[in-house]
Amino acid sequence: MKRCLFLFLILANVLNAWSKDTLQSGFGVQRYSIKANVEYGYNYTYNSYANFSGIATIPFSPHFEMEGRLQLSTANFYVGGFVLRPKIPFKVGELFFETRAQYKLLARNKIHETCAGLSLGYRMDYVSAQLGAFTRVFTPFNHDMNEGYGFTSEVYNIFWRLEVFARPQRNKWNVSASIANNNDFQIERMWQPIFNVGGRYDIDDKWRVHADIEFKPTGMFHLNASFYSVITKVGFTYFL
């Protein structure tokens, strides 16, 4: 495993040297940051609820970053996760490879949900696309080991995301629209899209504010589609 990582970093450095002027393009450069969000949501199951979340980004190098994520909800569920993201900047855009793991404690339903996935993405100034696969395991709190079937899993799921931006990444402000089966704290099934429209504004070199609205229908593809949930999100990011 260590050898693979080492080889990957060498490859990334070679590629970066070959295209080192890309570091000015807005990709491959990251700073330590802390992002905090407050969300208000409505869905048919929980009715009204609020979430509080934080994301810490740690860039170990221009080619490797890590994210830690935590979400607390008034609907009595709690999510923790991390992302490991090796990345290779190119002349146009950046290739990234994500390893994502997420644990969701559904205290309201007495269920643990664990997801882990791998995906490959490419991010450019105006478009970002990501495709991968993940596995999910549901385990009830009172899992009876003698029963043998206490948990269930969804072994092969597709993880996907497509996002378009109105401005280049380095711009002081940007707005974006995305369709994906996931967001920072939720990984839905392949055929369950989540639509998001969001924007951000960089107040200065240290502070960024952002707002999003997210809409999740149910029954699209192979069932009858109807509204299911809407979440509005506001927050800020502080760059160290």
Partner: peptide, 19 residues
């Protein structure tokens, strides 16, 4: 079939009904 071929309940509702 699973996770690939067909649509089901939203996950929030999956947990709720299972419980």
């Amino acid at each position: 079939h699973g996770s690939g071929a067909n649509a089901g309940f939203a996950l929030e509702e999956t947990y709720e009904i299972a419980d």
